[in-house]
Design a protein around this nucleic acid. Structure first.
Lengths: 263, 263
DNA sequence: ACACATTCATGCATATAATGCAATAGTATA
DNA sequence: TATACTATTGCATTATATGCATGAATGTGT
C-alpha cells in the first residue's frame, strides 16, 4: 500500500519513514514557514501521531524548532549549518565568487550565479550591489528558466527537444506584463542568445528587474551554470549599455569556465 | 537495544531510521564533504546495506547527491533551498541585515550577526567588507564563545554559573597564541564587557582577525544575539579606534534590539 | 591482462520498530 | 467554567526497516 500517487516519488526500496520526514520538511516554504502539527498533518495526509513523532525527532536533531510564542514549528538551525557546508564545498561557487565580487566592485552591479536543476535554476551565489542591497537571501531560491537571463542562457545550451520538454513540463507562467508567454517568442530570444553568446531579461520576472547573463561551462565544455549581472551599470541602465556589459559578462563567465577546467 | 551511547542522543520515542539518516547527514562536514558508503558506514557504525538504503532515499529527495566523477556523495541542493527558507524567515536576520549593510557602506567594515546556540554561536548573517571579501560562506558556521567578540558578548549576558558550565563543557581550545585559555583572564574580559557594553577580539580566533561586538536583545530584553564589525574601520585598524567603533556598534545593536521590540 | 580486493546494490526472511487507534493531557476560546 | 481544538503517549499490530548473503561493478597490484 505505497502512496506513490501522493508524494509523486516512486518510493520503491526507499525508507518510508524518511520519505515522510522529508515530505514534512518540504511543507516549510517561504509562504508557509510556520506550521503546527495539524497544518502539517493536513498537508501531507498522514496521521497526527505519525507527524507528531517525526516532528519530535526532527526537533531533537534541530532540523525543526518550536517557536515557543506561536507554538508553531519552523526550520531549525541544522539546516543552516548543513547548507554552509554544502555551499563552501561547491567548487563552482568558490571559483565564481571572486568574479562576482569583482564585477560588483568595478561596475556597481549585482552579480548572480545559478545552476540548472530539473528544468529550473537555483542560485548558488549572489553578491549584492552596494547601491541596492537585497534584504533577503537569494542563494537557494529557485526560479523558472523562461523569464530570467540565466534561465535563457541555460535553455540556449539545450537541444530544441529538451527546451520543448521543459516548456511542456513547467509551462511559461507570467510574472509581469513583460513575461514571455509564447514559446515562439522565447525561441527567437534563445536563437539570439545562441548567436550572441549572452541573454537579457528586462522586467520579465519582476518589474524593474534587469539582467544580462552568459553561460559557464564545466571541464567537458557543457553549460552547467550561468553568470548574470543585475541592477545598474555604473549608475546607468543595463539596457543602455547592453553590448558593453554583455562582453564583460561573457568574459567573466569564460574566466570561471577556465577555472573549472574548460579550455 | 538502543544505541544511545553512540549518538549521544536519548532516542526514546524518536523514529530511529530518521535518527540514523540525520547521523549520516552529520558526517558531511567542511573537513569531510565527500564520502562514500563505506566511509559513512565506518563513521556511524551501521551496516552497509542500511547506509546504502538510507543514502538512496536521501539521494532521491536531493538531500544528498552523488558526485559521478569520484563516486562520492555530497550534500544536495535541497539543503541549500531549505536553508534559504529558514534564513529569509528569521526575523532577527531580516531586521539586522539593513544595519549590517549600512555599517559596511559607511565604514568599510565587515559586519556579522550571530546567535547563541548550546554554548556556541553560529552566524545568521554576514556582509562582506568591500575591501576584503571572503571566499566562503560564513552564515551557518559555528564558532566557540571564548575567542570571538560576539561570543564574549553572549557570555557577558550569562550568569557566572552559566559561563562556568559553558567552559566546563566546551573547554577553551586555543586557535592562535592570542587565544585566551585561562578562565580567569576570560572572566576579566567579560567583566569589562559588562561595564562597557561591548567586547573585542584581536587575533584570538585567527591571526589578523579583529572584531568589536555588542549584544542584541529580544523583546524580553534578553541578549540573544550579537552584532560585530571586523576588518578595517575607514581603512585603519579597529584597535586604534576601539572606543569610536564600539559606540557605533552599540548603537547599531540597540537599533536592531528596538526593531525586535526591546524598548 | 588477469586475479584479487573493495565497494555498493539488492532479494529475501525475520524481527524490530513504525504507526494507527484511542485515551489523555494540554491550550485556546467563548 | 465549559467547550473545542490541538498535541502527546501507551499499546497492540503488522508493516517495514534491516541484517545477511549474493552478485555486480569498479579499482588495484603483479
Amino acid at each position: 500500500m505505497l502512496n506513490e500517487e501522493k508524494s509523486g516519488k516512486s518510493s520503491a526500496g526507499l525508507t518510508q519513514s524518511l520519505c515522510k520526514a522529508f515530505d514534512i520538511l518540504a511543507c516549510f516554504t517561504a509562504e508557509t514557514p510556520l506550521l503546527r502539527i495539524t497544518d502539517i498533518t493536513r498537508r501531507v495526509g498522514m496521521t497526527q501521531s505519525n507527524v507528531s513523532r517525526l516532528v519530535a525527532t526532527m526537533t531533537a536533531y534541530e532540523y525543526l524548532e518550536k517557536d515557543e510564542d506561536s507554538g508553531c514549528y519552523q526550520l531549525g538551525r541544522k539546516i543552516i549549518t548543513l547548507s554552509s557546508v554544502a555551499l563552501n564545498h561547491s567548487s563552482l561557487r568558490c571559483q565564481a565568487l571572486p568574479e562576482l565580487f569583482s564585477l560588483e566592485q568595478k561596475y556597481g552591479v549585482g552579480a548572480n550565479l545559478a545552476v540548472l536543476d530539473h528544468g529550473s535554476m537555483y542560485y548558488l551565489a549572489h553578491v549584492d550591489s552596494r547601491n541596492s542591497p537585497r534584504m533577503y537571501t537569494m542563494v537557494g531560491n529557485t526560479n523558472p528558466l523562461h523569464c530570467t537571463a540565466i534561465g535563457k542562457v541555460l535553455l540556449s545550451a539545450m537541444t530544441d527537444e529538451e527546451i520543448a520538454a521543459v516548456i511542456r513540463e513547467k509551462g511559461m507562467p507570467s510574472f509581469t506584463y513583460n513575461t514571455i508567454t509564447s514559446p515562439d517568442v522565447l525561441m527567437e530570444q534563445i536563437e539570439r542568445c545562441r548567436r550572441l553568446g549572452y541573454s537579457v531579461e528586462y522586467g520579465e520576472h519582476a518589474l524593474n528587474s534587469a539582467c544580462i547573463a552568459a553561460g559557464i561551462r564545466n571541464r567537458n565544455g557543457k553549460v552547467i551554470a550561468g553568470l548574470s549581472v543585475s541592477g545598474k551599470f555604473l549608475g546607468e541602465s543595463l539596457q543602455e549599455h547592453e553590448e558593453r556589459v554583455a562582453s564583460i559578462v561573457i568574459e567573466s563567465a569564460a574566466l570561471i569556465s577556465n577555472k573549472l577546467g574548460c579550455i
